[in-house]
Write a protein that binds this DNA or RNA. Structure first.
Length: 119
DNA sequence: AGGATGACGGGAG
DNA sequence: ACTCCCGCCATCC
């Protein structure tokens, strides 16, 4: 198994994979993504990976704070961009927040974590 | 080495 | 619901 030092790209790849695994119309928290990537407690690492990300195909907009709020400062470029992208998927965004229901069992089955379904 | 920073999380008041 | 505070981790100064 690869070593878990910051120089090891594996953790980053797992984080990206976890984000790509979020189905359209659903969302997940930073901490959630971290756990699914096998990195419990590394929510801030997920944030860093997103900040550094250059992949235009990555569904970064589906990642929210644990309380359902968009992580960008209200009114900022990223804030508006994320709101727009989420609404484009039918997600109801009010005042920078997504109303989320209880976690839903993952459909794939090989992931014990659950995603959030917007309410 | 030590303190500040950030697309975070959670608890307390 | 909102603010404040502290824990957490990788980076940067």
């Amino acid at each position: 198994m690869a070593d878990l030092s910051p120089t090891d790209p594996a953790p980053v790849e797992r984080i990206l994979a976890a984000i790509r695994a979020i189905p359209p119309g659903q969302v997940a928290g930073y901490g959630h993504v971290a756990r699914r990537a096998g990195l419990p407690g590394r929510a801030r690492m997920v944030a860093r990976v997103l900040r550094e990300n250059s992949d235009a195909n990555l569904p970064w907009h589906r990642v929210l704070r644990s309380d359902g709020r968009i992580a960008f400062p209200p009114g900022s470029k990223g804030f508006r961009e994320q709101s727009q992208r989420l609404r484009a998927e039918g997600v109801d965004v009010r005042a920078g927040r997504v109303r989320i229901a209880e976690s839903v069992p993952d459909l794939d089955g090989d992931l014990d974590a659950a995603l959030w379904r917007p309410r």
